[in-house]
Amino acid sequence: MSTVKYSNEHEWIRVEGDIGTIGITQYAQEQLGDVVFVELPQAGRKVAKGEACAVVESVKAASDIYAPVSGEVTEANAALGDAPGDVNAEPTGRGWFFKLRLADKSELDGLMDEAAYAGFVKALA
């Protein structure tokens, strides 16, 4: 059983056990346009909630990705090196960024659920 939560920086995190998988949302990839490059954190790196730990670039824009929760990176999606377009094609699937072992699951409470995020995006339009 997994839960998916969203940050107001347009990242999603899917939690299974104490491992969270992190990526950017459909809305974020639409705003960015064609992703051409993703810089990912190395496994073993400890990141704090809100810390910039990855970069996603389109032709004309570069955005930092902030850790939605604290934890230790366990794996980065190496396939994005050759296929950054996966972020556009399947932002919540093949286009995931990295996984981390959560340091404090209570931090998830500060994030939005799907309905709240949908409302958040709607308010931006």
Partner: peptide, 9 residues
């Protein structure tokens, strides 16, 4: 067929 935003080709 994209060309929604700035500089999109």
């Amino acid at each position: 067929s994209f060309d929604r935003s700035q500089g999109r080709v």
